[in-house]
Structures are given as C-alpha cells and as structure tokens.
Design a protein around this nucleic acid. Sequence first.
DNA 1: TCCACATATAAACCATTTTTTATATATTAA
DNA 2: TTAATATATAAAAAATGGTTTATATGTGGA
Lengths: 135, 135
Amino acid sequence: MNELVTIFKALSDETRLRIVKLLEQGELCVCDIVAALDMVQPKVSFHLSALKEAGFLKDRKQGRWTHYSLNDNDLFRRMLLLSVCERVSREAVREDRTRLASFMEKKGSKGTVISIKAQGKRCCGPGALSRHRPA
Amino acid sequence: MNELVTIFKALSDETRLRIVKLLEQGELCVCDIVAALDMVQPKVSFHLSALKEAGFLKDRKQGRWTHYSLNDNDLFRRMLLLSVCERVSREAVREDRTRLASFMEKKGSKGTVISIKAQGKRCCGPGALSRHRPA
DNA sequence: TCCACATATAAACCATTTTTTATATATTAA
DNA sequence: TTAATATATAAAAAATGGTTTATATGTGGA
C-alpha cells in the first residue's frame, strides 16, 4: 500500500508532471530541465528525486552530467506515464518546450558539447528521442 | 493538468486507498466506513470528500444517511480504481473488513434498520454488492 | 594543482494537507 | 416538539511537503 501511495504522490504535483512530459521526448540532463522549467536547480533536483524514488525515472551519470529518462521497467508505471503524457496538453508545456529548444541551441553553439550517440530509449508516446543529445 | 494533479493527489493517501478498497464490495454509508477504519467521523468525511471531489466517488443521500460508492462514469478513473483494488492486498485491509463485518452484525441485531433494496452498483473487482445493505 | 561547472544535499522557511475538536444541519422517532 | 442520530463543516493544531539559500561533492579542463 505504501508503494502505491508513493507512486501516486509522485504524480500529484504539477512540476513533476511537466518533467514527465518533457522526458516523453527522451532523456535530458538536469540543466536542460532547469532551463526548460525556468526553475532553480535544487528545486528541479528535488522533484527529479521524488520521481526517481517512485520508480518513474532512471538516471545515467556521465561525466559531470546526470541524464534522466522515463523508466519503462514496470508495466503499471508505464501505463501511468503514458496516461500522464496523453493528458497533459501540448499547450500546457509549450513554453517549457520553447525554453528547452533555445537552451539546446545555445549549448550547441557554445561548442562545450561532448559528443554522445543519441540513445533512443523511450517509454511512451509517439515521438522518439531523435535529436543528437549531448549535454 | 490541474485535474490530473487532483486525481493523483486523491489516491496518494493510505486512508483513502483503504476507503476505495472497502467500497470495492459495494456502497457503504459513512458510519460503516467510520467503524471499518476505526477513525473519528470528521476525518472520514474529509477523506470521502477528497475522493468525491476528484471524481472517484458518488453519493446517494437517503434519510439521515449518505451512502458512498465508487463512481464508474469515467474510464480513466475506473482504471485507476481497478489498479488500486488489485494492488491493495487483502491482508492490508483484513482488519477493516473484520470491523466492518462486526459493525454490520451489530446494526442488524439492533433492529434499527430500515429496509432498502440492495443496489448492485459496482465499479471494479470480482465481488458484487450482495449483502442486504441498509444503514 | 586550481578553477569552473553540474548536480546533490542540508537547513531554514513557507505552504498545503491532515487531524482534532467543536459545532451546525438535517432527519427521524418518540 | 424534543431528543437522538448521521453527516457536514469550521477553526485550530499538527504534520507533511515544497521552496529557497547555502554549501558539499565530484568531474573535467586549464
């Protein structure tokens, strides 16, 4: 019962739903999410860790970056993530997407990028992680 | 997005999951639930209203009693309720069931019962509301 | 080595939720 | 009408959750 409570609690916060919706497109590192949500980094880390504790996210450490992505190991959680992505309108996260895109661009042009093969890990939704996604 | 948060918030509390699990068997009035959970009545009313606000319950007023039951109008919520009932173990609510049963019996023998046709409204789960259930 | 960066964690603070206690409302029975 | 019962609501207290600010940790580059 406790696990169930943790699962639902993780999804009962707007910021966390926005994070899920962002990750629908594929993995992101913390600084991407910080830019997309336009929030301070500890706040984002707090919510990421709530989602991770509940089993919704996995992380991949690489150098100084931590990349988070939706965790599709468990069918129930996957179904919930899918429901969330379906139900959070494109409109609701348009600005997040805009900020993310412009942050990505800035990173690209800065030349501080380390080249990584894009990893097409996806949990749900129609799109696929397509962009070349270094940090 | 707000509605989604409300939905998940409603399910992210142990007491409310216990209530859902109790109502799996069919409608109950507040005093039944109070007895089953062994909690004070305003507390139970508070949680019932959270579940109702989120669209998980409907109520039926009859005389001095309010009978609550799972609301199966919406497919998404129904799926969530089903998931909850599936995942909350029988063990986890055994004592609730025991207290409920003995409360029912007491009511029955007290003779203060008003006769109502049992209503087989069910949302999910294998059992059906079978008992003759007045308040 | 030293510095800058990405992220995590801790502590203090603020906000929301839950619980308790008290009381109000409505209904039925006497 | 009065008393008893079932439930709801309100206000205060307690608990939990989220945000902010400051700092720690770990990594890679100069």
